[in-house]
Design a protein around this nucleic acid. Structure first.
Lengths: 151, 151
DNA sequence: TCTATGTAGATGCAAATGCATTTATATGGA
DNA sequence: TCCATATAAATGCATTTGCATCTACATAGA
């Protein structure tokens, strides 16, 4: 067990990051609930599927995009399908898999969620930092990505 | 329903923040699991209680500090008590309440979690950004706090 | 004092999550 | 061709979470 001590700067940046991200998520989830809308994870999936267009996506492709475990994707898709927001299609060249496509109702739900979600982002981020600061923040956060981009 | 559209900068900073914070949490939770240690939330509580010292804390004081719901604190404390990591004491001037204090075993567990947690912070943050960048990141994040500090 | 209201904390029940495993199909050798 | 191994997706079961409520005590006002 190799113990390394983080610098004080690393610790306080970490603490802020943990705290702020949770607060922002909580605020946004609250706003969605208040609007009678489903959780953020639903939006993430609907968003990816909307971007993917008519050809849809395979469930395993969603795993990395929405940062859910395989069983999480499986169950979330089952709920979305039950609500008529997505449809599952067999895929011709792989009998194990399926392709998931967003339905018109799904697109509509995505829009309705975005009305609240986008407002939340505008209030929580856009109103607090300038465009330059937002870019600087995004750039710093990008350096923390996992796995690290590049080499 | 007043819809506002967030700027592209706000959206990408938001996306990065959501993604990176989740990745970092996941990496750290994985490291804890790999070490046979309890989740981050346990650390948070043990840390607060360790800082509070012999006088301990009331459960309701933990709610805001660790960003858990009231029932979350109640149940987490029950688990910690069952593990002998904290103890609950009646409080003299309020028959409804209790004071929670960390035990020696709790302090020990906190240290063991920190050995892994601290290493994780060092690798995930300290190795990727300089001290100045970390300070800049923390400062930007501080501006996103909720509720906003000051006026 | 009595009553109404407020606050601290716990908990029953339903829903969501994590973990391990299962089912079904694919693929790359021997 | 047959088998061993790998991959896609689903699921049983235990744990955790969320929501609503409940119990117990506190406090302020009539």
């Amino acid at each position: 067990m190799t113990k390394r001590s983080p610098s004080p700067e690393a610790v306080s940046a970490w603490a802020r990051l943990m705290r702020v991200s949770r607060q922002l998520v909580e605020k946004t989830e609250d706003a969605l609930k208040a609007g009678g809308l489903p959780p953020l994870a639903w939006y993430d999936v609907l968003h990816e599927l909307a971007e993917a267009g008519e050809s849809g996506l395979r469930p395993f492709e969603l795993i990395d995009r929405v940062l859910l475990a395989q069983y999480g994707v499986s169950r979330l898709l089952a709920r979305l399908e039950a609500e008529g927001l997505v449809e599952k299609l067999p895929v011709s060249d792989d009998g194990r898999g399926q392709t998931v496509r967003i339905t018109p109702n799904g697109r509509d739900m995505r829009r309705r969620i975005w009305a609240v979600y986008g407002t939340s982002i505008a209030e929580l981020m856009g109103d607090r930092l300038s465009a330059e600061e937002l870019k600087a923040l995004a750039a710093l956060l990008a350096r923390l990505r996992h796995p690290p981009v590049g080499t």
